[in-house]
């Protein structure tokens, strides 16, 4: 880290170390970005993105933006990506997206536009005369954080205040969006029980998952006495996602083998032949 920081303090040019770091980490960043786009599962995408962001944080540090580099790690990789993961969890971790395109021509158009845009951007940068780098030695002389603070609380103070207001508004907005207003009195336990009786639903507590204590994972349906699985034993979310694992075939096979063995032992051929 200190090496990196030292490399970044170089004012105008770049050291060989920084070049090496750029090529290696840059490759990782591009790979991470590509994986973000191409991974089937949202969780994998999120992890790849987090990796790219960490690489970017290192690049910030290398460019003399110490404060931003740290904030990038804390806020982006730490907070924002965690938020993403929370939502992915809410929506369904394992649900893989189909990457098959449904809109005709969309993929080709997107690739064409992306390619064209990228080429144009790179051509634009290549055309621009950007050979003279001043470096941040002078600006960071009094410390990067102090320098930023001086600017933030003088020149950019109004923008700063407004961004604060924006954050508050966003928080309220998120609350409003996700909050559901209760418009009636919550029903008591007694009322719920009475309703269950009236509707003739399952009265006793739902059966537990797991089969003969051999499988006790929550996604495995408990088996009924005849060996068929009972979906009641599995959480409703899992049921809706279709993430129930079925072990009934195994259990039925076990049952059959047991019956055969006991039939052989008890010398009951008519049973065994069955």
């Amino acid at each position: 880290m200190t090496q990196l920081a030292a490399a970044a303090t170089l004012s105008a040019g770049t050291s060989t170390g920084e070049a090496f770091q750029f090529w290696v980490l840059g490759t990782f960043a591009v790979l991470g970005a590509l994986c973000t786009v191409l991974m089937k599962k949202a969780v994998h995408s999120a992890l790849c993105l987090a990796g790219t962001m960490i690489v970017l944080a290192i690049f910030y540090l290398a460019n003399g933006a110490y404060f931003l580099g740290v904030v990038q790690i804390i806020v982006y990789t730490g907070a924002i990506m965690m938020l993403f993961l929370f939502v992915v969890m809410l929506v369904g971790v394992t649900a893989a997206d189909s990457l098959k395109e449904t809109i005709k021509g969309q993929r080709w158009l997107a690739l064409l536009c992306g390619l064209g845009f990228g080429i144009l951007l790179i051509a634009g940068i290549g055309n621009a005369s950007l050979h003279h780098f001043n470096g941040l030695g002078k600006a960071n002389a009094g410390g990067n954080v102090q320098g930023l603070a001086a600017l933030l609380f003088t020149n950019y103070v109004f923008a700063f205040e407004i961004t604060g207001a924006l954050l508050i508004t966003a928080t309220l907005g998120a609350m409003v969006l996700t909050h559901r207003e209760r418009t009636e009195r919550a029903r008591t336990q007694r009322e719920l029980a009475e309703q269950r009786v009236r509707e003739g639903k399952h009265l006793p507590p739902l059966p537990a998952p797991g089969v003969y204590a051999r499988h006790n994972a929550v996604d495995i349906a408990g088996l009924l006495p005849d060996g068929t699985p009972s979906e009641l034993t599995v959480n409703r979310t899992l049921r809706q996602r279709g993430q129930i694992r079925d072990v009934s075939a195994e259990a039925l096979g076990d049952l059959k083998a047991l019956e055969q063995r006991s039939a052989e032992r008890l010398e009951r051929p008519e049973e065994a032949s069955k």
């Binding site: 960043a29 591009v30 970005a33 786009v37 969309q106 997107a110 536009c113 990228g118 951007l121 790179i122």
Partner: peptide
């Protein structure tokens, strides 16, 4: 490059 990849991802 990263920007273009991101934009294409949005579209795809």
């Amino acid at each position: 490059l990263l920007f273009t990849i991101g934009a294409t991802g949005v579209l795809i």
